[in-house]
Design a protein around this nucleic acid. Structure first.
Length: 954
RNA sequence: GCCCUGGUGGUGGAAUUGGUAGACACGCAGGACUUAAAAUCCUGUGGCCUUUGGGCCGUGCGGGUUCAAGUCCCGCCCGGGGCACCA
């Protein structure tokens, strides 16, 4: 008897909702907690495709497993609902982002429900709802009211900083700041409020500053660095330029060290940790100041190789460096100006593509404080304005780029490191002995670095310094669909943040989403929003998409709290996320911001844990197969001419363009035999009517104007398509909707199949062809409960053999779930069921707990069987079976016997046979004698329960 | 260039600490049932040789350690991802 997956699924979906089966309580605090989180989706109009659920299925299996093990499991879902796509859609269609977003959320919820996830929907978080973003705004104001104290190594309040300034100035303050001057208490107290606030903004964790930003004219907004790919916007591929604007920033660099060292204690993949480490980009070195001849200016450089100071023969500034104008000599002025102009005109892509060294001498000299030699000052575009101090001391002997530059322009090269003792070392290894460096001579590089740093500090010409690649995070977007920044300005530009009782600052309604083009958001046009009582004006920038996702995992703990972002008791109970599953595309944006916000809230005493995500799994992507047919460039008798992929290849035709076709027309999709048949041609023509009269030619025949004329006597009518692996995207017409697969095969089969495809972290192309294996498995399992159409189980005691198979399966599945190897769990189920069926197992004592074992993977079918077995309550709230070793004990062990490491025989010995008996008996076996005859036996290795190896001479 | 990954049959992939390579599936071939097909079930399936006992080769390539290497070490090659004039 077969089961009807559609009616079973509909029944239990409804039942689970009506009975709040998956609702989690914060009052169960006597139970141990476990928090399993998915990265919440952005609800795009395209809906979910088969790639999205991969991670959700894995986390759901794990959550269900932990629940059955007796944990109180928090497994929530929500939506990251603010962001550019909804606004772009609104610009094109006039549909309000709140409307399209909520429509999309409805679709997403339905698709997720089809998959049978055990989310507690009563905890749903939607980032664009005022009751949620009230707290996003509040955290922002909290960041504004704090600075990072490097003495305590944590965030401290600005008011305490103001007190310190008033009492003792800033000389004792060690903080993450861009303010470099010192002042006394008297000087501070004499400053005006505007001056004071200006200084404080250099300390605040949320602050405004003028900076170069990635301005995208086409989108009318500023983009974060990670939203710019190869000089164009990540969304839409529009050009991006550098523009000076006053912007809100978050001082994430204050937490650079804690973000870096915090990685050590996280169970994240090495790949992901490496990505964050690279992004933070910590490098130790020194900053050094060089006097400039005939000027009171100094050039400050950052170097990781202060030891090579005796080899520093010239200076290079970035073309945008502040001192360029001041230091350029009159003779060099024209050349320098032309160079700077040419650099600015070229886009970043052009600059990178060239890879050529270029630069100009500016006609000024600095002095090397160690050699006292003159160092010509150059500008060159290989020196970046945004890194370090925007200036370098060039050491052509020990830096490859400096070397190329010096060689090209004939600058002096002095060898200062003898690397002859390290013939295989690269420059990056920083090894060797100092030469030509006076008192440093003979020192190892490492020691020389320490020595130079010491001397430099003594002579007050620099200091040891740590530099980071990571920049402070731009936090303003000139767009409508985001959280308003809860700030207003008075007529002097002084900032007021909205207090908690006035939050949320709601996003006003409008129907005009066009960017203003002058760099302001559409909010700037809404007078009632901009003008506040008391002559204040509001900030009109909104927060970036990453704001809402930086703390949503905390809100799930207590989602409807209106007094706090979450109650203290909820935070103390749920603590942190035990398992986080999501895509690697968020490796540096979302995952870094979340860690930053979490650390900040921890510093302020709101959270019990410093790191938000203990264990992280990155699921791989499910790729699509792009199916194309070849369109020849030349028409045939005025009609479009398509040709079979095999013919194009065979004939070596180059004048053919692959045209992606909708994969639903393609038969044997994704295989080598993928093709269009007559029905396929007809669907294609209906889909693209401009090809109504096109000729479709392949080796078997020709399809033209609705008729198939065969060549020769072939009965086949198929046109092979070209298959390549790529993204699943609307653009390639290859999106597979999970709803369709579920309708055909069922949600349980879909879930197990996605898990069966391979390791969760690996990317793989979608291939529906082997889904039949999983489908057959579930049918077989179901059939074990029936005899001739009626449900029937035996209440007899299980046999030793049955228990052995069952406990073997428990052992394997438990072990593999714990290491997130879900594909091998599915294999283990198949093996277990195959073996139990072989011995016609129909015992309740086996099949009942086996159903619980399977429940996390196939929640619908197991729930139905649970009910058929007459059990009360849900199978998902029962208990996971325990594995007992005693059932696995073997009577005899099959030993492989090797001669010189090569397996030659297999022989059964009773379990527990002593080593010396094994040796003796093995040697007496006929098969063994054949190999040992007349040879000296040098050694016998016996590994109990594993193998026997006999080593013979010759 | 740097960092991180991965490379195993026709295909997806298995293989705790080094200990029977290819589990589990798909596909393919043959068979049963059927008027036929679908579905289902059974058997075989890494390659080569073979006197049908078995033998030789085999986890990207070349070396090495070991009684024993897909697994460890050294040197390469190729695919995927990230960063990239980062001083």
């Amino acid at each position: 008897m077969e089961f009807n997956h559609q009616s079973i699924e509909a029944k239990w979906r409804k039942h689970w909702v009506e009975n709040n089966t998956y609702k989690v309580s914060n009052d169960n605090q006597d139970k141990p907690k476990f928090y399993v989180l998915d990265m919440f989706p952005y609800p795009s109009g395209a809906g979910l495709h088969v790639g999205h659920p991969l991670g959700y299925i894995a986390s759901d299996i794990y959550a269900r497993f932990k629940r059955l093990e007796g944990f109180n499991v928090l497994h929530p879902m929500g939506f990251d609902a603010f962001g550019l796509p909804a606004e772009e859609y609104a610009l094109q269609t006039g549909i309000h982002p709140s409307k399209s977003t909520s429509d999309n959320i409805v679709q997403y919820r339905a698709q997720l429900a089809n998959l049978g996830f055990s989310f507690d929907w009563s905890r749903e978080v939607v980032t664009c709802e005022p009751k949620y973003y009230k707290w996003t705004q509040w955290i922002f104001t909290l960041l504004y009211a704090n600075y990072f104290d490097q003495n305590t190594n944590k965030a401290e309040s600005i008011s305490s900083l103001v007190e310190t300034f008033a009492q003792s100035g800033n000389s004792t303050v060690k903080a993450a700041t861009t303010f470099e001057d010192t002042f006394t208490a008297a000087e501070w107290n004499a400053k005006s409020e505007i001056e004071k606030q200006d200084i404080l903004s250099h300390y605040r964790l949320a602050f405004r500053q003028v900076g170069y930003v990635n301005w995208c004219e086409a989108l009318g907004t500023v983009l974060a660095n990670d939203q710019v790919i190869d000089g164009v916007s990540e969304r839409g591929g529009h050009p991006v330029e550098q523009k000076a604007m006053t912007q809100w920033y978050l001082r994430i660099t204050a937490y650079a060290d804690r973000l870096l060292y915090g990685l050590d204690n996280l169970e994240w993949s090495d790949a992901l940790k490496a990505m964050q480490t690279n992004w933070i980009g910590r490098s130790e070195g020194a900053s050094l100041r060089f006097d400039v001849e005939g000027s009171d200016q100094q050039v400050e450089v950052f170097t990781t190789r202060p030891d090579t100071i005796y080899g520093a023969t010239y200076i290079v500034l970035a073309p945008e460096h502040d001192l360029v104008d001041q230091l350029t000599s009159p003779e060099q002025k024209t050349e320098v100006e032309e160079y700077v102009k040419s650099v600015k005109m070229r886009s970043e892509i052009e600059r990178m593509a060239e890879k050529q060294v270029s630069g100009v001498f500016i006609g000024a000299y600095a002095t090397n404080p160690f050699t006292n030699k003159k160092m010509p000052i150059w500008i060159g575009e290989y020196v970046l304005a945004g890194y370090g101090t925007g200036a370098i001391m060039a050491v052509p002997s020990d830096d490859e780029r400096d070397n190329i530059f010096a060689t090209k322009f004939g600058l002096e090269i002095v060898d200062v490191v003898d690397k002859s003792k390290y013939p295989n070392a690269s420059l990056a290894d920083k090894v060797g002995f100092m030469i030509n460096s006076e008192d440093l001579n003979g020192l190892e590089v490492k020691d020389a670095i320490t020595e130079v740093c010491k001397q430099v500090e003594e002579r007050k010409i620099g200091k040891a310094k740590i530099n980071y690649k990571m920049r402070d995070a731009n936090f303003g977007r000139q767009r409508y669909w985001g959280e308003p920044i809860p700030v207003s300005y008075d007529k002097d530009g002084l900032v007021t943040t909205l207090p908690l009782e006035n939050l949320p600052l709601e996003l006003p309604d409008t129907s005009d989403f066009k960017p203003s083009g002058d760099g302001k958001s559409p909010l700037a046009r809404i007078d009632s929003f901009v003008n506040v009582d008391g002559g204040l004006t509001r900030e009109t920038d909104t927060m970036p998409a990453v704001a809402g996702s930086s703390w949503y995992f905390l809100r799930y703990m207590d989602p409807n709290n209106d007094e706090a972002f979450a109650s203290e008791s909820a935070l103390n109970y749920w603590q942190d996320v035990d398992l986080y599953v999501g895509g690697a595309e968020h490796a540096v944006s979302h995952l870094l911001y979340s860690r930053f916000w979490n650390k900040f809230l921890f510093d302020k005493g709101y959270l019990p844990k410093e790191e938000p995500f203990k264990k992280l799994i990155n699921q791989g992507m499910i790729q699509g197969v792009i199916e194309s047919i070849y369109l020849l460039r030349e028409k045939k008798d005025g009609d479009y001419h398509f040709m079979c992929a095999a013919m194009v290849e065979k004939l070596g035709i180059e004048d053919a363009v692959p045209l992606p076709v909708h994969v639903s027309f393609v038969s044997d999709y994704g295989t080598k035999k993928s093709h269009l048949n007559i029905a396929g041609f007809k669907s294609f023509i209906k889909w693209r009517p401009e090809y109504e009269n096109a000729i479709f030619e392949c080796s078997k025949g020709v399809f033209h104007k609705g008729r198939w004329s065969k060549k020769g006597d072939s009965e086949d009518s198929l046109m092979l398509t070209k298959s390549e692996i790529g993204k699943m995207s609307k653009r390639y017409y290859n999106v597979i909707n999970p709803d369709d697969v579920i309708a055909e095969h069922g949600a349980d089969v879909f879930r197990m199949y996605e898990m069966f495809l391979g390791p969760i972290e690996q990317s793989k192309p979608w291939d529906i062809n082997s889904i039949s294996g999983v489908s057959k498995f579930l049918k077989k399992y179901w059939a074990m409960f029936f005899k001739e159409e009626t449900f029937a189980l035996s209440d007899d005691e299980p046999t030793k053999e049955e228990l052995k198979i069952f406990h073997g399966t428990i052992k394997k599945v438990r072990h593999d779930i714990e290491r997130f190897s879900f594909n091998t769990c599915v294999s283990a189920f198949m093996e277990g069921v195959n073996n139990l069926r072989k011995i016609n197992c129909d015992k309740r004592a086996i099949l009942e707990p086996f159903t619980v074992l399977l429940a996390p993977f196939a929640p619908f079918v197991t729930e139905e069987l649970w009910q058929l077995m007459g059990k009360q309550g849900s199978v998902h709230m029962s208990q996971y079976p325990k594995f007992e070793e005693k059932y696995l004990v073997e009577d005899s062990i099959s030993y492989p016997i090797s001669i010189n490491g090569k397996k030659r025989a297999l022989h059964d010995f009773p379990a527990g046979t002593a080593k010396d008996v094994l040796e003796k008996e093995a040697l007496e076996l006929e098969v063994v004698k054949k190999w040992t005859e007349g040879k000296e036996i040098k050694k016998i290795i016996v590994v109990p329960n594993k193998m026997i190896n006999i080593v013979v001479a010759g």
